[in-house]
Design a protein around this nucleic acid. Structure first.
Length: 524
DNA sequence: TTGTGTTTTATTGCCTCC
DNA sequence: GGAGGCAATAAAACACAA
C-alpha cells in the first residue's frame, strides 16, 4: 500500500540518487558490512563480490568501505594510542621504544601502518576467540582509557584484545609494536586461528604477511605486561578457569539442518558472538536504528531489503529511524556495553530491555565524550551484571550467557583462556620462541591457504555436518527469499540468525574454535 | 533554524607485491 | 603492468549547540 507507492516513487528517486555524489549505506548494509568487517578486515575479492551482491552494492563500494573502515579504525586506534600513551607512558610499565621506530622516527608511514594494521589483525585473528571488533575495541579502548583516566586499575579486566590494548594503554604505543623487535617472521604460522582458517579467505599479502608477526608482537607485549604472571603452559595469568557453560560444546540447534543461519552465510556466520557483540559501535548513527528495526520493524526490514538496491525507501526508513533515535536519545547508560556485547534480538526483542538493547549514536558519544563520568571502571561489572540480568531471563541463551555474562574480569579466565587462543597462542609461541624462524612466510601462506580451502570446503560447520546442509540451508533461504521477492539480506539473515543463534551459535564462539580445531586437526 | 563540528562516502594518487 | 592497499582530500550527511 503505502509501501508500494512509496517504492514506486523511490524508483524514480533511485535514478536521482544515483546521481548523488554519495549515498549513505543503509543500516542493513552497514550492519552486514560491519559484521563482515569484524571477521574479515581484508576480504578477498570473492568475499567482496559476494558481499556486494548481497548488499546491493558494487564491489568498488565494498572495497572502498573496507578501506575506509580500516582507516577509521586506524585513526581511532591512533588517537587512542596517543591518548593512552600520553596517559600511561609516564607510568613506564613498558618502555619499549628503544628501536627508534617510533612513529616520528620513521618517515615511512607504511611502517607505522604495518604495525598498526597488524595490531588490528591481532585483534581479529590473533586473539580470535575474543574477536572484538575494532569498533568495539575502540569502544572498549575508550572505556579502558577512561578507566585509566579515572585512576582505576583495570587489572586483568580485559580479554586478550584488551591485553593488547592494554599494552598500548600502559605505555606501549601501538606504533611501537615493531615486529622486528618482538617477533619472528614465523609468526605467520597460519592455523593459529582456526577461525582464521575460516577467515583465511584473504590471502596474506604485503603487510598481511606480518600479521602473524604482529600477533606475536602483541603476545610478546602481553607477556611483557604480564611478566612473571604469564605462564606458558598454564592458565593464562594464573587464573582459574570457569567451568564451561552447560552444553557449551554442544550444538544448540536441535535441527542443524534447519538452521540455515548456521551455515548460510559463512562470512557473517563466522563472526563469533563476541564479534557480533560489537554492534553498538558499528555505524554509530544507526545503532539504535538497528535496535528498533530488530525489535519492531522486522517486516519493514524485509521491505527494506527488498529494495535494498538503491532504495530511497531505505533512506526514508533510515530517516525515520534516525528520528526515532533522536527521540530516544535521552536514554543512555551502560547500553553501550550491554548491547555491545550482545547485539542479538534476544536483547533487542526483550520487552523489558528494549532500552537495553538500544544504543544510540548519542550513547556512543556519551561514552566517549562523557565517558569519564558515565563509563567508570565499575561500568565493567555493571554492564555485565546488567547483561546477566537479561540473560538470566532466557535459559535458551545459556550459551550466550555462559559466555557473555563473563565479567570482564573473567574474560581472561573463561572467554579467552578457555578457548583456543590460549593453546593456539601457546602453540604458536612454541615455534615463535624456539623455532620461530623455522617456518618461512611462504610456508605460512601455504598453510593458510590450506586452511582456507579447508574452511571453504567445510564452511564452518560445527560438528562435522558439512557443506551439504549448508548448501541446502542456503538454497532454502534463497528460495524463500526469492519466493517473497526479498533479496537475501545479511541483516535479514542476522535477524533470523539471531533468533536461532543465541542458543545455537553462542557456542560457536567455542565451537568456532572447535570447528576450526577439528578442521585443523584434520588438516594436520 | 542555523552554524559548526564530526562522520561517512567517494575519488585520486602513490606504493608494494606478484 | 595489474591488483590491492593506504593516505589525502573533498564533499555530502549528520549531530549538536546556540
Amino acid at each position: 500500500m503505502e509501501e508500494s507507492s512509496e517504492l514506486q516513487s523511490e524508483e524514480n528517486k533511485v535514478s536521482n540518487e544515483k546521481n548523488k555524489k554519495r549515498k549513505l549505506k543503509t543500516p542493513a548494509q552497514l550492519t552486514a558490512l560491519e559484521k563482515f568487517y569484524d571477521e574479515h578486515k581484508y576480504p578477498t575479492e570473492e568475499m567482496k563480490v559476494e558481499l556486494a551482491e548481497e548488499l546491493g552494492l558494487t564491489e568498488k563500494q565494498i572495497s572502498g568501505w573496507f578501506c575506509h573502515r580500516r582507516l577509521k579504525d586506524k585513526r581511532l586506534m591512533k588517537d587512542e594510542a596517543v591518548a593512552n600513551g600520553r596517559q600511561d607512558r609516564s607510568s613506564g610499565v613498558i618502555q619499549d621504544r628503544g628501536s627508534g621506530l617510533g612513529q616520528d622516527s620513521c618517515g615511512s608511514s607504511k611502517h607505522a601502518d604495518y604495525r598498526y594494521l597488524d595490531a588490528k589483525e591481532v585483534e581479529s585473528h590473533g586473539f580470535y576467540n575474543n574477536e572484538i571488533s575494532v569498533a568495539d575495541m575502540t569502544q572498549r579502548r575508550r572505556n579502558h582509557y577512561l578507566e585509566n583516566v579515572s585512576g582505576v586499575d583495570d587489572t586483568s579486566s580485559e580479554s586478550s584484545s584488551f591485553l593488547q590494548e592494554r599494552a598500548f594503554a600502559q605505555g606501549q604505543d601501538p606504533y611501537d609494536m615493531d615486529p622486528s623487535r618482538h617477533l619472528t617472521p614465523n609468526g605467520a604460522l597460519p592455523p593459529l586461528n582456526p577461525k582464521g582458517a575460516v577467515n583465511l579467505g584473504y590471502k596474506p599479502s604485503g603487510y598481511l604477511k606480518l600479521k602473524g608477526e604482529i600477533e606475536h608482537a602483541a603476545i610478546t607485549a602481553v607477556k611483557k605486561q604480564l611478566g612473571r604472571h604469564y605462564e606458558e603452559d598454564g592458565p593464562l595469568l594464573g587464573i582459574e578457569f570457569d567451568p564451561p557453560p552447560p552444553g557449551a560444546f554442544e550444538c544448540q540447534t536441535e535441527d542443524p539442518a534447519n538452521e540455515p543461519f548456521c551455515v548460510a552465510n559463512a562470512p557473517v556466520l563466522n563472526s563469533p558472538e563476541i564479534s557480533a557483540a560489537k554492534k553498538p559501535n558499528l555505524s554509530s548513527r544507526y545503532d539504535s536504528h538497528y535496535t528498533k528495526f530488530n525489535s519492531q520493524d522486522l517486516h519493514m526490514e524485509g521491505a527494506d531489503f527488498g529494495s535494498l538496491h538503491e532504495s530511497d525507501f531505505q533512506d526514508k526508513q533510515d530517516k525515520k529511524a534516525r528520528q526515532n533515535i533522536k527521540q530516544r536519545q535521552p536514554y543512555h547508560g551502560y547500553n553501550t556495553h550491554v548491547s555491545g556485547r550482545n547485539p542479538f534480538p534476544d536483547l533487542y526483542e526483550d520487552s523489558t530491555g528494549e532500552a537495553s538493547g538500544y544504543n544510540s549514536a548519542k550513547n556512543h558519544r556519551m561514552s566517549t565524550k562523557h565517558g569519564v563520568e558515565g563509563m567508570r571502571s565499575d561500568s565493567a561489572s555493571n554492564h555485565s551484571d546488567h547483561f546477566e540480568e537479561k540473560l538470566a531471563i532466557k535459559p535458551k541463551d545459556l550459551m550466550l550467557h555462559g559466555y557473555d555474562k563473563i565479567n570482564p574480569k573473567r574474560i581472561q579466565k573463561s572467554g579467552h583462556v578457555k578457548s583456543k587462543p590460549s593453546s593456539s597462542i601457546r602453540n604458536s609461541r612454541v615455534p615463535m620462541d624456539t623455532e620461530e624462524r623455522g617456518l618461512s612466510a611462504r610456508m605460512a601462506k601455504e598453510e593458510m591457504f590450506k586452511l582456507d580451502q579447508k574452511a571453504k570446503n567445510t564452511y564452518r560447520d560445527v560438528d562435522g555436518r558439512l557443506s551439504n546442509e549448508i548448501l541446502v540451508a542456503k538454497r532454502a533461504k534463497v528460495d524463500m527469499l526469492q519466493q517473497y521477492h526479498v533479496k537475501p539480506s545479511p541483516v535479514a539473515e542476522m535477524e533470523q540468525r539471531k533468533i536461532h543463534r543465541s542458543a545455537a551459535e553462542m557456542p560457536s564462539s567455542f565451537s568456532e574454535d572447535e570447528t576450526a580445531e577439528t578442521s585443523s586437526s584434520l588438516d594436520y
